[in-house]
């Protein structure tokens, strides 16, 4: 029997299907006791509409692998950070034409206001050029911003640093 950890780690994200929940860093813990599997996941954003589907997919995958009793728990702290996306996950994002996030800001105290463009340096995932610009900090899903390459002129998505 495949371990519960291995089964859960293979489940993919509903909105970024090239990544597993483990690649994305939302799979926090898988434990098994007396035949019951407990999986802990954390939301990327508060309103992430994929949470329900992630739960369902985890339960479904584990039941399919022979684990009859599965409980999926939410963990809220520490809050998810884009820093938790694994190296493998970053490579898969880039291969899918999505620019992976840089280092997330670490702060304490009042959050400084940003009136200019963000300090992030983003390379075009299509042609590799560093000549890119931000179109919008908000994209098709909560976790992505929209950028454009000035060299090849292609638009592309960038996973935001949080």
């Amino acid at each position: 029997m495949v371990t519960a950890q291995a089964v859960a780690a293979r489940v993919t994200d509903p909105e970024l299907p090239m990544l597993t929940l483990a690649d994305l860093g939302v799979l926090r813990e898988v434990s098994e006791k007396d035949g019951k599997v407990v999986v802990a996941i954390t939301p990327t954003y508060s309103g992430c509409p994929a949470m329900d589907t992630m739960r369902d997919d985890l339960v479904h995958a584990l039941r399919g692998a022979g684990y009859a009793e599965v409980e999926v728990r939410t963990v809220l702290r520490p809050a998810w950070s884009s820093d938790w996306i694994t190296e493998d996950g970053r490579r898969k994002l880039a291969e899918a034409g999505i620019s992976p996030p840089g280092a997330a800001p670490r702060r304490s105290g009042p959050v400084p206001l940003t009136l200019g463009p963000p300090a992030r340096r983003v390379r075009c995932p299509h042609c590799g050029s560093a000549e890119t610009e931000l179109l919008s900090e908000f994209g098709a899903t909560a976790c992505k911003a929209l950028h454009r390459c000035r060299a090849c002129r292609e638009p592309f998505e960038h996973v935001k640093e949080i």
């Binding site: 939301p43 954003y45 508060s46 309103g47 992430c48 509409p49 179109l135 919008s136 900090e137 908000f138 994209g139 098709a140 909560a142 929209l146």
Partner: peptide, 17 residues
């Protein structure tokens, strides 16, 4: 369109909170 998407995303974050 970009602002449409931005406003909807902000609304979604707040709904999640």
């Amino acid at each position: 369109l970009e602002d449409e998407v931005a406003i909807a995303n902000i609304g979604l974050d707040l709904l999640g909170q």
